[in-house]
Design a protein around this nucleic acid. Sequence first.
DNA 1: ATATTTTATTTCACCAGTGAAATATGACTT
DNA 2: AAGTCATATTTCACTGGTGAAATAAAATAT
Lengths: 174, 174
Amino acid sequence: MARLTNCIAMMNEGIERVSQIIPQMPAVEARLCRLMLMVGSSLEEELEFKLKPHKLNHSDFLTLMILYSRPDGSSTPGELCEFATQGATNMTRITNSLVKRGLITRGASAEDRRRVVIRITAAGKRFVQKMLPPMFPRVGAMFADFSDADKRNLSRLLSKLAHNLDQLDPGTQP
Amino acid sequence: MARLTNCIAMMNEGIERVSQIIPQMPAVEARLCRLMLMVGSSLEEELEFKLKPHKLNHSDFLTLMILYSRPDGSSTPGELCEFATQGATNMTRITNSLVKRGLITRGASAEDRRRVVIRITAAGKRFVQKMLPPMFPRVGAMFADFSDADKRNLSRLLSKLAHNLDQLDPGTQP
DNA sequence: ATATTTTATTTCACCAGTGAAATATGACTT
DNA sequence: AAGTCATATTTCACTGGTGAAATAAAATAT
């Protein structure tokens, strides 16, 4: 049975009831937030499902993909934290785990001894090149009935929301 | 500085580079997925930020809100798991924590002794009614520059994606 | 040249979440 | 009536994530 759409229907009912009790609640916006969070959770679950056979989780995968996408295949824990929206603590743990699997290496920085240089290995690159293609059909299938205009619209609306979230964020205000 | 939009820019570059190495990658769809995940993460962070003064996390809040929105203010752990997309293990922990704070109660079911009835308390209702209004301005601000058509479009596209995810999900296929 | 502040990463102890197993109960089959 | 299977929840041991503190190094101020 259709779980996510069911949950969405129940969420709609719940928001409807709460907005009757608290009429000043911005129900349309609250509902959009909730919908975003639910779809996001489901996307994450779908990604973790695809990664499971490779014994990777989302964070491992993202870290590896960031390194793979770099021209020189390297970065630092600090940069990886920023790109992957992870804490330093956790990036240490993630990189430890990937080093252990021989997918990346950890080295000293020539210009700053505080820094660590993380680099994807040849085995890591092969691992990514092997892992990605089987994921493509399901990624395509998620948007099977989206027109080009739909995709552009979704992109525009999400980017706009991202910009608004940046304006709000207390953590990044100067 | 604008963190999320910066990460998005870097993600765009990364996807561009990977799609040059692996031309058969559905880059548009991969980018939309990644964008969804990033915006979702940021929404979650924004929500956790709003909840922090109340010493609640997202799961506690959602569980409490589901109970608050029910006509009779009650549910079972099994139902709560379904609505909140949580495991049974974690729902035990979440409900234990909310019981401890006096926001909900745990009782026996009259018709099925395997079941537990979770009910929001008067204190829990007051807590919700006090907690929600200060959240409204920032919820509204997230969509400050969205037209009504934008909101309807976002809703339509997310619902469509949700439906596609349900079609894909191996966990719920009959 | 020295002291102070800032930055980068790791370690530690903890929190939120999970899968497997245990327990109790209800439904179904024989 | 008894046995088997399914359901609901909790417990246990673990994983992935966090904030605070520790450590080392670089930048800045004096």
